[in-house]
């Protein structure tokens, strides 16, 4: 969908985008918040906000999906502030690519890997593994971490990442490939993935 003008178009967009938005919400939400607010609730808020702000939508600035993601990030930010009393993660800054919260991405990735907010208990093995991966990811620069998160945990395309970071698509490609190369080096020197490597 290229444009977003009518409520019908918005409804259609919400329908197709909701699984990915939900994934992003689950990924970005602070672990401390999960018990109080479900990611589904946040997506509901996003939908309501999107309906209210539909007339602000600017086709030249965002694709419809990225516009929804932006609203999601703002909603998450507000929710975090409201419930935790602090701006847990500077999502707005993140979205504008001005700077990254160094701890944020790797912590969320590790949290996601450890089973997200779904499980009542996180097994010791998994916790250990999450910590291990977190350590590996921490060795990446914050920018690299964020790019890996956007590409693989938020499942955004190369182009979308470029838009979010406000950089040229070519620059986004270079950053992504560079981040992957570093991750690969770290991972293979740690010998972590080797045993379960799957090319298929």
């Amino acid at each position: 969908m290229d444009n977003l003008e009518t409520a019908e178009q918005l409804a259609e967009l919400l329908e197709t985008a909701s699984p990915q938005l939900l994934r992003i919400a689950r990924f970005r939400i602070d672990p401390r918040l999960v018990r109080r607010i479900s990611p589904e609730d946040i997506i509901q808020d996003v939908f309501i906000a999107a309906k209210k702000r539909l007339h602000h939508y600017d086709n030249n600035r965002h694709t419809p999906f990225l516009w929804l993601r932006l609203i999601l990030m703002q909603t998450l930010c507000d929710t975090h502030r409201e419930h935790l009393g602090v701006q847990a993660r500077d999502i707005r800054k993140e979205a504008g690519a001005v700077g990254f919260d160094p701890g944020a991405t790797s912590a969320t990735i590790a949290y996601q890997i450890s089973g997200g907010g779904h499980s009542p208990s996180v097994s010791a093995v998994r916790r250990e593994r999450a910590q291990h991966i977190q350590k590996l990811l921490e060795q990446l620069s914050p920018i690299d971490q964020e790019i890996v998160a956007l590409r693989h945990y938020e499942e955004l395309s190369n182009k979308e990442v470029a838009t979010i970071l406000g950089i040229e698509i070519k620059a986004a490609s270079i950053r992504y490939v560079r981040a992957l190369r570093r991750l690969k080096e770290i991972v293979s020197s740690a010998g972590y993935f080797e045993s379960e490597m799957d090319n298929g």
Binding site: Q112, I113, G115, H118, S119, S121, R126, H152
Partner: peptide, 9 residues
């Protein structure tokens, strides 16, 4: 890794 760990119980 991401997919495998999306669900635990």
């Amino acid at each position: 890794t991401k997919m495998q760990d999306e669900l635990e119980q």
